[in-house]
Amino acid sequence: MAGINLKELTNRQSPLTEGHRMCPGCGAPTAVRQGLMAVEDPVVIVGATGCFEVSTTVYPYSAWRVPYMHIAFENAGAGVSGVAAAHKVLSRKGAVKDNIKFAAVGGDGGTYDIGLQSLSGALERGHDFTYICYNNQGYMNTGAQRSSATPANASATTSPAGSVIPGKLERAKDLTEIVAAHDIPYVAQTTLHDPMDVIRKVKRAVETPGPAFVNILVPCPLFWKIDPANQVKVCKLAADSRFWPIYEVIDGRHVLSYDPKDPVPLKDFLMVQGRYSHLFKKGKERTDLIEQGQADVDREWEKLLKKCSGWTG
């Protein structure tokens, strides 16, 4: 890929250090590390409450080489807009000369649910910041509760699969499209299937003037009940099954960044995860729910292709 030389990147210090206390095989530090890898300007990070915040700033240690502000669940968007606005004023007065970038990092709980109104406000006001959502599809820090990002039929502790319900009954909401509806300069959706895609998208988001948003699907080995080593394989299945389309919205234009050459059925993505194991119980297979899920995926994919048609990257 033009402009990014991996060998040179190995000599650069990552804003996120080793020694953070995220679980082995967690996707969130991978996503943030890859994303901030190629960002050249100094960054300030605002972290919403969540796994990533509590595990990178365990008192009295910090796993950040850059200024980091911890903020509550609901106001990462408000916090980062305040910092960005302060920088704008200080630059105008000549007190700060550096070109500093601002990024907020939040999980899906802090972004899809609790922090949505402050994020929406910050996007509408048009501050120059990037919001990185590491989306593991539930509240992992508190013990795998369902969030509005949890997909249908996934068994979470507050929507457990059993004799009454087959896991979560509702579909996940499409936050990337909700954010895109704010008509901001850059919105992207990706997962850990291809590191260059994450690096490129976060770099572009940070370098875009004005608000930008990147939604990165990351596996939580404890909730998804997968072998931590299979992080990349599961993300690849999410992209190849079209469960998690990889696309970006540049100035309101939808551009598909990854069109799986050999799409796999949704079943392949569900089967590798323990949170869907109740759908595959011998003799009690819920083929109706799997077919319903596949129909949802196909419908969403068609909708996305329609939005992408007519535009080229």
């Binding site: 990552s14 080793e18 082995p24 095989g25 969130a28 991978t30 590191p195 931590p228 080593a229």
Partner: peptide, 29 residues
């Protein structure tokens, strides 16, 4: 690129030099 714990050491010229056992959590990615 993929190590969640940044435990793969490089030698300054883009060559892999070893694995940092001080930080490696053994996830197997």
């Amino acid at each position: 690129l993929q190590c969640p714990d940044a435990s793969i050491e490089t030698d300054g010229e883009g060559k892999v030099n070893g694995i940092n056992m001080f930080f490696c959590k053994g996830c197997g990615v």
